[in-house]
Amino acid sequence: MPISREFKVGLFVACTAAIIAVSLAALAMGKGLFETVHTFTLSSKSGDGFTEGMPVVFSGFNIGVVHGLELSDEGLVLIRIRIPHRHVKWIRSGSSFVLYRPLIGAARIVVNTDNLSSPALSENVIPEVTVVNDINDAIARIEPMLDRLTKIADNVERLTRTLADPRGDLHKTLGHAEKITSNLAGKKSVLEMAVSDEESIHAVHEALRKLDDIMARLDGLLAKTDAQLYNPEGALPQVNAILKDVLQKLQKLDKTIDNINRISADTSEGMKDFRILRSDIDDAVAAIDNLVQKLDGVVGSKKMPELKTP
């Protein structure tokens, strides 16, 4: 039996309408349209950021909606939120309410409940809503950056102005660089470019040449000094020999002093040889003085090899 056109049309319209109706009913039930709704009142010092229809969120899930906004006699903003019965268990007396205004996305009231076993929030209690504002935070963070950027922009502008100025530093520097380049191209030396006076350059060259001569002479002098000092017949071996001689003489002097002491002892016995003895001592002392002077001379000349050349 063929199906009539009317039947097909009726079936299509009825089935589609039923599907739509079922979908809408499921949506209505899912959104809690047929549920008991609890109304809570929150307060805030400012109504900024609150709008009717704003979602109330718990752990990322929408559990209610802002139903209305009012201004109380005390000047506080009263926010009425509607929570379906199945979600009312998340609203406890210890719950805190935060107006969260993200940088991207819609603002929402976030419910935080640390202790779910605390007693349910009474509908007569009016908790206060705190505000977390990503936008203001972001602006506060961005402001210093903007200041810096403004300064950088000013500097860049100044630099640009200076660069563009025909009398500016850059143009001068470029002029100098051009001059240097041309000088280099003219095969002149760096010294010539620095002094830019040919006579001075010749003088410097002359001085350097003389310095070379001086250094050569100084080297010869030092070589001779070394030879005089350190040769087997040089000053130092002689000094050594003198010192040994002095030591021997001092040993003899010790004996002489002993003799003097003995003589002194004898003096008390006899004063007649005193003047002769005195003159002998004077002679010996004079001899020592001479020796010491010689020694000083020799020792003093020892510092010479240690002279440092410039």
């Binding site: 056109r5 097909k8 049309v9 299509f12 319209v13």
Partner: peptide
Amino acid sequence: VNQIYFTSVQIL
């Protein structure tokens, strides 16, 4: 009915 048939049912 004819119009619904041709517009919706036939092309469903």
